[in-house]
Design a protein around this nucleic acid. Sequence first.
DNA 1: ATTAGCACTCTATTATGGTGAGTGCTAATA
DNA 2: TATTAGCACTCACCATAATAGAGTGCTAAT
Lengths: 348, 348
Amino acid sequence: MDLDERNKKVLQAVIDSYISTGAPIGSNVLCKRYDFGLSSATLRNIMAELEEMGFLSHPHTSAGRIPTDQGYRYYIDGLISTSNDVDEIDGQIRQTPSLQGNDVKELMAEASQFLATLSHCAGVVVAPNEPEGQYKHIEFVRLRGRDVLIIFVTASGIVQNKLIELDEKISQHELNYFSSFLDEELEERSLLEVRRRLVEQMQEHKLVFTRLMEETYRASQEVQGRDSEHVFIGGASQILESPEFANVDKMRALFKAFEDKYKLLKLLDRSVTAEGIKVFIGSENPYFEVQGCSMVVSNYQAGANVVGTLGVIGPTRMQYKQVIQVVDYTAKLLSRLLGERLQKGLER
Amino acid sequence: MDLDERNKKVLQAVIDSYISTGAPIGSNVLCKRYDFGLSSATLRNIMAELEEMGFLSHPHTSAGRIPTDQGYRYYIDGLISTSNDVDEIDGQIRQTPSLQGNDVKELMAEASQFLATLSHCAGVVVAPNEPEGQYKHIEFVRLRGRDVLIIFVTASGIVQNKLIELDEKISQHELNYFSSFLDEELEERSLLEVRRRLVEQMQEHKLVFTRLMEETYRASQEVQGRDSEHVFIGGASQILESPEFANVDKMRALFKAFEDKYKLLKLLDRSVTAEGIKVFIGSENPYFEVQGCSMVVSNYQAGANVVGTLGVIGPTRMQYKQVIQVVDYTAKLLSRLLGERLQKGLER
DNA sequence: ATTAGCACTCTATTATGGTGAGTGCTAATA
DNA sequence: TATTAGCACTCACCATAATAGAGTGCTAAT
């Protein structure tokens, strides 16, 4: 399905126009606004052709053309492959305060807000999941005789805490002993190894500590858990600004979808397999039921490993050029920040 | 401004009807649906009187009556003082899964969701703030030479962590020493005392530890911090179900307001001074600009102290009876759970 | 004091016609 | 052969008008 150079230009123009005005565009306006050296009649023929091929459509007989999802797809594929232009949003990014959260969760929340502000879409960030992440420290704090607070720390500074109730009393002294034991045992291991090691240990020592080990095991799972607490949505109200969501039912559907963070999580996790920016247009995404939405997503890294996903959700008619740049920038920014944190955790 | 028994009944009926149907009610329908033993003409006179007094109003000449904010106020004041009826929502509450979060934050998020589900409004919970809360433990984890992770734990099991960079290198051994020192020094003290003590200590020891103390001080502030991270909103999309928000602009305004959690925080913190349920109707609340909203809020406790606020935000036309019961129930439930946690932390 | 009756008011709904942007087709043109 | 001018036709959109119906306020009778 390849297009003539001229047709390509016309398609581009139609989509550009539609993206910026939101109104269907007719042959006359197109002819006047862009300089094709062609008459409106010829444009009409071309547009009819593009419609035939599935790139454009008609809201009704006497309206102008609007892009179909397939049209957007063609447009964006062209965009991504040739996106070496100067950063047009550079100025905006400079003006926006950067991320500085201490806590990883804080950082994620800020990043989602950052995305939203710059893209005028809802920003979504899935918190890091590092099976290769390194164990750093475990701490047990005895509260009452049988109640113990477990604090699990990874090298990149993620802290997971958990309140449990043991079957038997245990002293703080014993807890400290056990914590040093684990620190020594698990030092420098990856979370995956940590869990394997814990299982082995549990089979050896069939003691009081078994329960503690079990819970430590759970904590190590939770630290890289994939539940709704690990999804951050910022600036959802940005979407409400766009006229395509000036419809009450659509809004409702959208916010319902946002509340089901778990689904969103699965969606984002599955969507992004390869590295780099990915764009999902309208119906292309089977998991997100809301009509007329697109997603622009990317991976981010901590050190050498891809650990999470971030992106934006907005109307299909969005400013893809800018949005792609913003998502790309944010992914790189977050990767850099996490990389730094990781460095701090690993060096000695 | 006291009402005749008969007028009271009519007002009650009008508001009941309006709350359940959402449509202005006329004298004819009122006459047929409720059994006053009065003709529609008499009701017309009464309604005109109630309007005169400011309890009812007219959308336009030939429409039925709807309650004013003042009308609601009267209605609710009567409601609260006489709310000793059987729990009508009892069944629903039993069917709804209860709160079980481990982490305090998780618990708060669950509570906001719980409120929303039962009240069909947005649920809001402000996380506990306990100046009287007790210090339990501090832990310093050395990451790289100058980077240290501070973990601050209170008796009720709240964990606050913070990543800092010192000016000088420091060994894990020194950190452990300092942590034991602080644990001994601050044991059993309230957060308020902890901060006072830290200031004193800082003046005595003008050493490397000063920076650590400073940051410990900050962590102790943050643990009872009052920033946007401490506000939990659940089920905001519930509000979208009600027809009064079927208006796009209102929706927008509402969600904008929800995103400004900081403002919401101040609003809730200020609103509730006395104990017990409070209801804010429409314009009564000067800080929340969205028109047509009411709030039902209550305090909750940890042990003997009031530590936080929770409630719901919904359309002025909400099922106050049920909602009040739900908010009351949730506040008590949360108080109980926090009380239990606190017990665990304090006993030895 | 209450009620029946009635004229009046105002919204909501439906019907109607005009307007204009845009198309598709045909015939003329380069 | 590709392009263009011209023209009839379509259809959403808007404003206006007409109608129906719910509800009121007032007056006079009970």
